[in-house]
Amino acid sequence: MITLENVTKIYQSSNGSVTAVDDVSLHIKEGEIFGIIGYSGAGKSSLIRMLNGLEKPTKGNVIVADRNIANIKGKELREARQEIGMIFQHFNLLWSRTVRENIAFPLEIAGVPKEQRLKRVDELIQLVGLQGRENAYPSQLSGGQKQRVGIARALANNPKVLLCDEATSALDPQTTDSILDLLVDINQRLRLTIVLITHEMHVIRKICDRVAVMENGKIVEQGEVLQVFRQPKQTITKRFVQQVIEPEETKETIAHLIDKYPRGNVIQLTFVGEAAEQPLIANLTRQFQVNVNILQGKISQTHQGSYGVLFVHIDGTDEEVAKAIDYIRQQQVGVEVITDVQ
């Protein structure tokens, strides 16, 4: 659905040039929810803006729904844009129009006759759950409701792709979740390809099928969300994964335990999918001469399945502990022996 080939974006400014996006190649499949995560300044915003031609790449091709957005302009670009919906961090609704009129705006642009327009707007209001607020102005809506209007507006012309530019970053956690649920619902109902950028791993974890991690304009890591959660390779990815699975106090607890028990090992176990359902700890204490002390655990739900992390302290003779760790390794459970806390 979307292919980026060696895309580079360089901004010229008075104090030299800045490479915002550096030779990025990417393929996004039809119907998937693809997340791009990075800190601010990583270039993700420039990247998503190139997908609908709000920014032109300095080099490279941007192919969305068989059109090379990098090369087209004028009428052709406007038509391409009608097939690409976009929602924004600050909603960008027209304050002078009601909910209904805001949603009708892209239909007016596409030249849809009035009668059909009204019908389509009603459908969209149903779809995003804004019944009863049709005639409200944006200033009378909450953040979550505004984003629902933004989503309805973006879907008005039945786009093939929906771009989400930090769409939940201005919302509180509860509202974020309800908007994310709506996005998943839309993705499944309409088979819509969704590309989102965010700095919150929570968003990636909750709805994305695949993720790309951006740093300094480059994609440093990408893959299935569950895979990236299980085995983050880059330091930045590990930091993002920690955002969701490892509360701050874990580090302190572990540091404390390493000091307190010079014997034995503190171990991080990572369970993915079915592995999470085995009685691993029970088996360990039954089969080996070790004591297992559970320090902290958490299970996170991703779009593709569950993912759990458990911190345990295993105590016993060196030999038994080594045997126990070997045993865990055979169970398709990720093991990491923690010797000190970074």
Binding site: N52, L54, L77, R81, I84, M86, L93, S96, F105
Partner: peptide, 28 residues
């Protein structure tokens, strides 16, 4: 708000549409 103009562009609006349906009503 620059974002509103950007949103209209992202919807495929022509400059005339942006003037008549965004710039003038939003600054009225």
């Amino acid at each position: 708000d620059k974002g509103v103009i950007e949103a209209a562009k992202a919807m495929g609006a022509t400059t005339a549409t942006i003037i008549w349906k965004v710039l003038l009503p939003e600054s009225l």
